[in-house]
């Protein structure tokens, strides 16, 4: 029996919901609006909401003066590079723990989780010195390594929870039918594992894209992704709000779109399966 919901309830809830949603989203909306203003309009009091002189010059200037594309490329390389390496290492591990668990599987999983709890600042000094001595500061390879290791526990965990849901009976059925291990992998398991792997990739790319401790400390120019690039706008002489807004809008747009598709995976990935 469906519950009856009064119209008043519906209207109040809708009004309150939209108001709260709008308030929370407002800083992002304001940033996007500001990115289309002239610097003069961006600073003006009272603020200009919609009826200002719309311009896209900020976007052109951001690319021209500060080589935005170079940093965007670095973000892509770091996010996808570290995710790819993590998958190669994590898929076999998650696979074996989900399909051939031993007495120690539980402890292994929890231990992996505990490595994620280590505050990065606890290992900042040695990592920085190792990178300096190894010539890895401000390089793609160095950053990919760090991001890969920092997120490996989450990747293993997420894959594990997805693989765990693949019914094992299917494997046995396939074996009964005389499928070899190779065929079993390609025709039976892979199709069932792909959605879980895709979700994991999505979440990990988002996390790596926004990671700002290691990127700020270990990159300056060559390998600097968008997090570091935006940080350069914090210097007093660089305070051009419209340009800051344009650069910021470009930096978050792709990941915002990906993020909106990943709500469910986010809950699962970040709570290590404790809330589904």
């Amino acid at each position: 029996m469906a519950r009856r919901i009064s119209t008043t309830h519906r209207v109040t809830a809708t009004a309150a919901g939209w108001l709260v949603g709008f308030l929370i989203f407002f800083p992002i909306l304001w940033m996007v609006l500001t990115s289309f203003k002239t610097e003069l309009d961006a600073f003006s009091t009272p603020p200009q909401f919609l009826f200002f002189h719309w311009t896209t010059e900020n976007y052109a200037i951001v690319q021209e003066r500060s080589n935005y594309l170079h940093h965007a490329m670095n973000s892509i390389i770091l996010a996808f590079g570290s995710t790819a390496v993590a998958l190669v290492v994590a898929i076999p591990a998650a696979w074996s723990m989900a399909f051939a668990p031993t007495k120690r599987t539980r402890d292994t999983l929890l231990w992996m989780l505990s490595t994620k709890m280590m505050p990065p600042v606890g290992v900042l000094v040695p990592i920085y010195l190792l990178f300096r001595d190894g010539g890895l500061l401000d390089t793609h390879i160095g950053l990919i390594m760090v991001e890969f290791l920092a997120n490996l526990p989450i990747v293993v965990w997420m894959l594990y929870t997805y693989f765990k849901e693949i019914p094992k009976d299917i494997l046995e059925a396939a074996r009964m039918d005389g499928a070899t291990i190779g065929k079993e992998l390609i025709f039976v398991l892979a199709p069932m594992a792909v959605p879980g792997i895709a979700s994991t990739v999505l979440l990990n790319v988002i996390l790596a894209w926004n990671e700002a401790f290691w990127t700020l400390n270990l990159t300056t120019v060559d390998a600097a992704p968008l997090t570091t690039f935006i940080a350069s706008y914090s210097s007093p002489e660089g305070l051009f709000w419209a340009k800051l807004s344009a650069a910021s809008t470009l930096a978050i747009a792709p990941i915002l779109v990906l993020g909106w598709f990943s709500q469910k995976q986010l809950v699962r990935g970040l709570t290590f399966g404790a809330v589904k």
Binding site: I24, P27, L216, T227, Y233, S245, A251, I255, W260
Partner: peptide, 17 residues
Amino acid sequence: LMVIAPFFVMPTVSALV
């Protein structure tokens, strides 16, 4: 969507904005 959006904004962007 509007409510969860801030989570996907990188820290340097949200701080400066």
